[in-house]
Each structure stands twice: as structure tokens, then as C-alpha cells.
Amino acid sequence: MRIIRTKDYEDMSARAADVIAAEVILKPDCVLGLATGSTPIGAYERLVERYRAGELDFSQVISYNLDEYRGLAHDDPQSYHYFMEQYLFSHVNIDPANTHVPDGANEDVEEATAGYDAQVAAAGYPDLQLLGIGNNGHIGFNEPDAAFSKGTYCVNLTESTIEANSRLFESADDVPRQAYTMGIGTIMRAKRVLVIANGEKKAQAVHDMIYGPITPSCPASVLQLHPDAIVIADEAALALCE
């Protein structure tokens, strides 16, 4: 696991954008695994800037997002499909047909999850998978559990995750209680994994991911076993990793 220490969120975002941009330049038809939440917004903004400057071409890029709230349609302003349109897809020349997000509006769990897994597998899995990390060590929506998950599945969100995400809703009561997420097994099949983290609230999770025992009680710890994992985090997030 390669650790890149950055000064702050802006520096973290720039370095993460560097890694993603390099993937697109070196392999124009690359498969990107993408993440949502507040952490990757800065990186997406920098990718948009580079596209507008003529430095990047997304026309052949294929993307697969990690997760989506169950019960939300693609056009729901709180959906992750909407998020990706807002912060990246609508600002670059990626083909909408090449962008994929789990179908939160599909109430048939088996169809929604197995179908998405089949799509990701048919694409050969991501060349680069972008990940954030939750305060409890979750990646995607893979919450602490008794065992590592395998393929895409429906997860019941923990109260800590609901509370953390409630800032994006009017209240915690409005946050969906379930989500479709790529499982740990699917994430680990990505050729390269890039984890980004910032802020002191992530310090314990980042420490446990890098140095703690490999355990499903900290899902991100499994990344210690990935052959090509990069962690880009600011000083606050790495405070316990001295």
C-alpha cells in the first residue's frame, strides 16, 4: 500500500486528480470505478478543469459507480446518479451510455444487484477504482460486518453512516436506510485502488485501514491485500499514522 501525505483537502484533491488523469491519458478507453460523497468533489472539479483546458478526453472512458441508495430514481436530486451528473458527467465529454450507476429505483434486489455485477464483470472490472472511507471504515456502502461481502448486494446502512450522510438531506429521517453497493470482492478485482481521505474525523479509520488487523469490522482493512493500492490523505487524516 503506497501512502501519499498531502497538506490539506485541496492538495489531496489535486494529487487524486493527477492519478485519475494519468489513467485516462495512458488508457483512453479505461474503466473507472467512481465514488460519491463530499471527499471526491475536489478531484472531480480538477478533472473538469483539465478537460476544459483540452488536457483530457473522456469520450472512450467507461465508468461504474460504487453504489446507490435503494428507492431513489436516477433523476432524484439526492441520488448518486444525479450527483455524478452534477459534479462530473455533464461537464465532460463522457458518453452517457458508458456511465453506470446501480439502479436504485429497481425494487427487485436480485435483479438490481446481480445485473450490476454482471455488467462490471463483462467490462473486465475497473482499471482504477476510486474510494472514499467512512468514519467507521466502510468503503462503498460496505459497513462493518462479521464477514467480507462478495458481489453487489443490498445493505442496511448503520446509524453512523446515516448520520454522516444526513448533511446532504433535510434531516436524518430523509436518508434512505438501504443501498445497493459493490461488494468487497468486486472492489478487490479492480486493477488499482485509490483511496482518498481528509480531516481528523477519518484519522482512526485511516489508521485501521493501513495498520490495523485485516477484519470485516473495518472493511477498508482488506485493501492491505490489494496488489496496487494508493492512499492519498491529508495531514489530519494521517494524524495517527506517524
Score class of each variant (00 low, 15 high):
E200I: 07
T215R: 04
Y69K: 05
G137H: 08
A14T: 13
R177P: 09
T113H: 10
G185C: 14
Y44L: 15
V193D: 01
N106C: 15
S149L: 05
D75W: 08
E163V: 02
P216L: 02
A164I: 03
Y180L: 01
S59K: 14
P213G: 00
A14V: 13
S79R: 09
A197V: 01
G137M: 09
A233D: 00
D173S: 10
Y69R: 00
A112T: 14
M188S: 06
L225N: 12
F58N: 06
V120Q: 08
L168N: 02
A105N: 11
E45G: 15
H207A: 13
Y153I: 08
N135Y: 02
N156S: 10
H207P: 03
D108N: 14
V109W: 09
E111A: 10
C218R: 06
K202M: 14
S38R: 15
A197P: 03
N198C: 03
A43R: 10
D76Y: 08
I4L: 12
T113W: 01
E49F: 05
F169M: 05
K27D: 10
N142G: 03
I230T: 09
E23P: 14
G212L: 11
A147T: 14
E45M: 10
E163P: 06
D234A: 00
T181S: 15
V19D: 06
S59W: 12
I139L: 12
G42E: 04
Y211C: 08
H207E: 13
E163N: 08
I133A: 03
A147F: 07
E85Q: 11
L131R: 05
M209A: 06
A146C: 04
I20F: 02
P176I: 00
A205L: 04
R177V: 08
M182D: 13
R15T: 06
Q60W: 05
Q86Y: 09
L225W: 03
S79I: 07
N156V: 01
H207Q: 10
T161V: 05
A205Q: 04
A118P: 10
G124V: 08
P176C: 03
I20W: 06
T39P: 11
R2W: 00
N106I: 13
A21P: 12
Y44N: 14
R50D: 06
R167T: 02
L47F: 11
Y64I: 13
G212Y: 15
Y82P: 01
G199S: 06
A197Y: 00
Q78I: 02
T186I: 15
V222H: 05
S171G: 03
C154S: 05
Y80H: 07
M84P: 12
A73I: 08
S217Q: 13
S149K: 00
I210R: 01
H138G: 08
A205D: 14
D75S: 15
Y211G: 04
T181Q: 11
S59G: 09
D67R: 06
M188R: 08
V195W: 02
T39L: 13
S90C: 05
I62Q: 09
N98V: 08
T39R: 15
R2H: 09
L194F: 03
R189H: 15
